[in-house]
Design a protein around this nucleic acid. Structure first.
Lengths: 150, 150
DNA sequence: CATCACGCAACTATAAAAGTTACATGAAAA
DNA sequence: TTTTCATGTAACTTTTATAGTTGCGTGATG
């Protein structure tokens, strides 16, 4: 089962945007995410709708943060992506006639719900500000501070 | 992202096996899991290796439980399936040169690890015995007790 | 008005999972 | 001992979700 790395990718570009003074183009962000510009626009669309970022057309256009990093949690970002399923396992049918399957599903559904709630709470407790602080700490630790991204 | 329903499927057939006095063929189990016999053999192979079930060839062959239901937890079953990834989200690269990405990955990895541990603990606390008890409770609640599975 | 950048729809490619086929092995029954 | 039944496994095909691509429209800037 292949895992969805959009959250990680979007966080990456958001922090890059935070580092930049002006707007950053999809083209540039795509290079950081190692994907292509259209994919970037696709995933950023949800963030724009929620007012976390803004996009501008034409010369000097591109993406800019519309909020302070401290006001955006990882959970916010996850939701802006259309909160995709967090768990890789699930059950086969939702309304099984089989009582055995009902019992199995009930037990699993409980555990899954709890685990998702747990993870969402964790993500809700982490802001982009914190990630940025961690990044700067790493940057300071580096002997020769060079460009943040290859 | 499509979720892996093997755990749910295997639990289903294990409980069915518990209901049956003799061995149950892959053919029969496949019908309960709504899949085909080869898939059943494939997923059951891990359970056999760990001694949870036994398989027999030829006439009167098929699958039988080799342990008491109380001795098998959902976590055991999950591990027997080769413990597939529990989370549907992950990160893009494991050893990023980019410090921004490192910071992102570190934060996510922590949360993910905790959430997985949480879920595994939950699964470890549920035995097949408990699921079976729940099934029997459901069966008793039914006004007209009929066959457990369509 | 030429260029640049996003918006979006539609299409293609890719890769993981499930399903299928085919044949070998071994056990029980006839 | 021969037939039948059931698992063991490898190899192949199908399916499907996701990522990636192309193409064109829109609007902003120089």
């Amino acid at each position: 089962m292949k895992s969805d790395s959009r959250l990680s990718g979007v966080l990456h570009v958001l922090l890059h945007m935070a580092q930049s003074s002006g707007p950053v183009t999809s083209e540039t962000l795509a290079r950081a995410m190692r994907t292509n510009p259209v994919v970037v626009r696709r995933v950023m669309a949800g963030l724009r709708e929620r007012g976390y970022v803004r996009s501008g057309k034409g010369h000097g256009g591109g993406w800019t943060l519309a909020r302070d990093l401290a006001e955006i949690s990882l959970r916010d970002v996850h939701e802006a992506l259309g909160d995709p399923t967090l768990l890789a396992i699930g059950h086969r049918s939702d309304e099984p006639g089989c009582l055995v399957e009902q019992a199995v599903n009930a037990a699993l559904a409980d555990s899954f719900r709890e685990a998702e709630a747990f993870l969402l709470a964790r993500l809700g407790a982490i802001t982009l500000q914190m990630l940025s602080a961690d990044f700067h700490a790493r940057l300071a630790r580096r002997t020769s501070p060079e460009s943040s991204c290859p």
